[in-house]
Design a binder for these strands. Structure first.
Length: 581
RNA sequence: GGGGACGUAGUUCAGUUGGUUAGAACGCCGGCCUGUCACGUCGGAGGUCGCGGGUUCGAGCCCCGUCGUCCCCGCCA
């Protein structure tokens, strides 16, 4: 017994020939004297017919079939008569007239239907994930993911990249996210850490002279979850020797173009580029969604009007084609802004009475037409912080996105198939840590600084720009990278700016620092979030929809019930005793 | 750690001001049915109203606690 075709294969051209199909009973229609089943495998669905006045024994056996039974059917492919053609399935012009039937396995009644017409709760789906994965949506998503992985490998190989693995059992480094720890049995009291990313290893592979590295690799971060964050997630990790920033861009853009093509979308390269400073000033975020228009500074048009604090921005936000808002809607926007310290002038008509010329200028500057929503927002109260302008812009950026998403039904600009890629460059080198009262690396401590800012490293860290970059798609941070520091003396200066002593730095990252002393080439790279990329290409709103076996928001696995307690014996072997609560 | 939404049949949901035996659709089981394709039709089974406590003559509904799922803030170099 050997499968000859898939359930998506058969066409009229095969009529009259024999075929043996294997798959799952998708649906059974028992009309008494004739039984139809839709047989499903991953390629499609084919109708099987069992006639009582044909192979009577086979028909009798077919009465036993139920949803999701696994069967093999052998028979003759028959062209359907015109009035019985099913235009909804690709194989709908033929059917298989069953002559033999094997029930390979029975199935309990599935906990929820295979149809997509019913939205099943996520807990049920996660508990019976193997069933959920059989449904068309997940089949599509996981197949897309596989295609994206393959396209990535194919493309990067063709460009001379080598796929190289790095350890999962590695050393905990104190910076960054919380580590997942793995206790060592041989060295009791010591722990491995699962990598937050292979960052240090890939840099050392450059020291080793491999020049072009990539890896599709799992990363682990023990932080709280979100719709786009899982404790384990997958990166397309890339590193190159002797690159300039633009070298990395020129490697990544065609890769993303190729990946999008696999998903059926044409995208233009090169991508738009924005500096971090521009992104903040025009969108109020470092990952702008370009499907909505940027906002405009208008403080120069209203000198001494008191609409915002002296020296702070006044921002005009345009949301296209929103039409008139109700009083309630305007109040909502106002309140949203107020929660972030903003004064939102939601009723532009009222401002227009006092400042007719200025408003005309605002309209011209923003390009606002009659049915666009125009909000003007300022911050009359003086904010605190390192970058007060940025605080205003950030609040406006949130307001822009809030309004844009709220009224998406009207302007329809947030089309999930409209892919707007963007590079954000020149991130600040450091950010101020309020709690610890010191500077932190904005990207990571091995990121190099712009040559012209090198001297400011210790004197003016706030204004040092890093050679780091993010690739952003529709408001989602897809990937992040940098040109690394390859010289030990520069690395020392950065540590100095971060307030690490040489000794402390050596304790934390000694193996990397030592590596840099043995002929490290200039190098840099990027890591792309594969889950997020596939999520967007699949049109999903959560990366759980593109991960076969994801965790819940609390980090548990509802299917296998992890994490779980372990027997005392296992703990003893590891030298671990649990503290009583 | 904080805020919000939700939890009723296998699934998706309804359940009025706290009132008598908790409903619907789909699914499931059985009968009938030879051209269906979300087959049709007749009948039937199926409930720890997440869990615990409280208020009350009486709780799916009100109160307190707790568990779980989702979203957001913090966090994620």
């Amino acid at each position: 017994m050997r499968r000859t075709h898939s359930c998506g294969d058969l066409r009229v051209s095969g009529a009259g020939s024999r075929a043996l199909l294997m798959g799952w009973v998708h649906r059974r229609r028992d009309l008494g004297g004739v039984i139809f089943i839709h047989l499903r495998d991953r390629d499609g669905v084919t109708q099987i017919v069992f006639h009582a006045d044909g192979e009577a024994k086979v028909h009798e056996k077919a009465e036993l079939l139920r949803a999701e039974y696994v069967v093999a059917v052998e028979g003759t492919v028959r062209k359907r008569s015109p009035e019985t053609i099913n235009a909804n399935i690709p194989t709908g012009e033929v059917e298989l007239v069953a002559e033999k039937l094997w029930i390979l396995n029975e199935s309990r009644t599935p906990p929820f239907p295979m149809e997509e017409t019913v939205d099943v709760s996520e807990d049920a789906r996660l508990k019976y994930r193997y069933v959920d994965l059989r449904r068309p949506r997940m089949q599509r998503n996981i197949m897309l993911r596989s295609q994206v992985s393959f396209a990535t490998r194919e493309f990067l190989y063709s460009q001379g990249f080598l796929e190289i693995e790095t350890p999962f059992l590695t050393r905990s480094t104190p910076e960054g996210a919380r580590d997942y720890l793995v206790p060592s049995r041989n060295q009791q009291g010591c722990f491995y850490a699962l990598p937050q990313s292979p960052q240090l290893f890939k840099q050392l592979l450059m020291v080793s002279g491999f020049e072009k590295y990539f890896q599709i690799v799992r990363c682990f971060r023990d932080e709280d979850l979100r719709a786009d964050r899982q404790p384990e997630f997958t990166q397309i990790d890339i590193e190159m020797s002797f690159p300039q920033q633009v070298t990395v861009f020129e490697a990544i853009e065609p890769l993303l173009q190729r990946i999008c093509a696999v998903a059926g979308y044409q995208i233009e390269i090169p991508f738009q580029r924005l500096t971090y400073a521009e992104a903040m000033r025009r969108y109020g975020v470092d990952k702008p969604d370009l499907r909505l228009p940027p906002f405009c500074p208008v403080e120069d048009l209203f000198p001494n009007a008191g609409l915002t604090a002296e020296g702070l921005p006044l921002v005009a936000i345009r949301i296209p084609k929103t039409g008139a808002l109700t009083r309630k809607e305007r109040d909502e926007l106002k309140a949203y802004g107020a929660e972030r310290g903003l004064r939102v002038y939601d009723d532009v008509k009222r401002l227009e009475r006092d400042y007719p010329e200025q408003l005309a200028a605002v309209r011209e500057r923003t390009g606002a037409s009659e049915d666009d929503l125009l909000l003007i927002a300022g911050w009359p109260g003086a904010p605190k912080g390192q970058r007060p302008d940025e605080n205003v812009y950030m609040a406006c950026g949130q307001l822009r996105l809030f309004a844009g998403q709220k009224y998406n039904d009207r302007h329809k600009l947030l089309n999930p198939k409209d892919f707007r890629f963007l590079w954000v460059v020149d991130f600040p080198m450091f950010e101020w840590d309020e709690e610890e009262n010191r500077w932190n690396a904005a990207h990571h401590p091995f990121t190099s600084v712009h040559d012209e800012d090198l001297e400011k490293l210790t004197t003016d860290p706030a204004h040092c720009r890093a050679k780091s970059y993010d690739v952003v798609l529709n408001g989602v941070e897809l990937g992040s990278g940098s040109i690394r520091i390859h010289r030990r003396d520069v690395q020392s200066k950065v540590f100095e700016a971060l307030g690490f002593s040489e000794e402390e730095a050596r304790r934390r990252f000694g193996f990397l620092l030592e590596g840099l002393e043995y002929g490290a080439p200039p190098h840099g790279g990027i890591a792309l979030g594969l889950d997020r990329l596939v999520m967007i290409l699949a049109g999903e709103n959560s990366i759980r929809e593109v991960i076969p076996f994801p965790k819940t928001a609390r980090g548990t696995d509802l299917m296998c019930d992890a994490p779980s307690a372990v027997p005392e014996r296992q703990l003893r072997e590891l030298g671990i005793s649990l503290r009583k609560k």
